[in-house]
Amino acid sequence: MPAEPGPPGIRCEGIAKRFEGPAGTLEAVAPLDLDFAGGRTTALVGPSGCGKSTLLRMIAGLEAPSAGTVRIGGETPAEVRTRAGLAVGFQDPSLLPWRTVQGNVALALKLARRRADPKAIERLLTLVGLEGFGTTRPGALSGGMRQRAAIARCLVTEPELLLLDEPFGAVDELTRRQLAHDLPRLWEARGTTTLFVTHSVTEAVLISDRVLVLSPRPARVVADIPVTLERPRAEGVELTPAFAELAEAVSAALARGAAEAGPKGLAAQ
């Protein structure tokens, strides 16, 4: 099926994941029907180990679902990947230590079978605040700088779909806030469809247009909360009553999910 014009939406039908282990079957994601509108940013929030990363990996096609289908603008994940239409930001920045920052960003273009334009890469590095670090190797960078380099790698192929798995996980609080403010502007401007896994309530509200709260394993949707704050988010938006209300709602949904799962949910952790 040909891709529709504009940023693609994502449609998951009955998508589920079970892992067969020596200790029996582990149900990571219960059958889920999900729709993500094109061009919007959605945060997936849930307790650790609830299956949100697995969900993201299934949408990227890195993991085959045990049941159900994923369509990205009508295409399968494999088709989208083959033309480098998506990019994944991993929890670990996953930079290759033997390549410079520039080399790591250029690698994405190489893998996407596109020509690397050093000037464009330099501009992107400036945009993520790594100006002048193009020839540095990842080993010499701080955790936050590595994350930004990884995000630059995600953006360099100008993907239609951006899948970020706790991309600020390994970063200190201060840098984290800075990144959460600065980076969405980069993909918002391009109208990229973005899915964003996090367990920080503030981050979810700050970054996204919509928050999906997931239950403890196996993941179900506990709440689907639209975020109506104005874009781009203003400096200090975290201190407004509207923001606090949304954050409250997300926290309450998280607590509800945990309570409904009860001791069984805890035992599954």
Binding site: R57, L62, V80, S94, L96, L111, A112
Partner: peptide, 22 residues
């Protein structure tokens, strides 16, 4: 580490690219 191969796979490339680049 496994995520390096995931990274290669996320651009739709297979074992040969993973061998050469990683």
């Amino acid at each position: 580490p496994a995520t390096w191969f995931d990274m290669v796979a996320s651009y739709g490339r297979g074992h040969v690219a993973a061998l050469i680049h990683v």
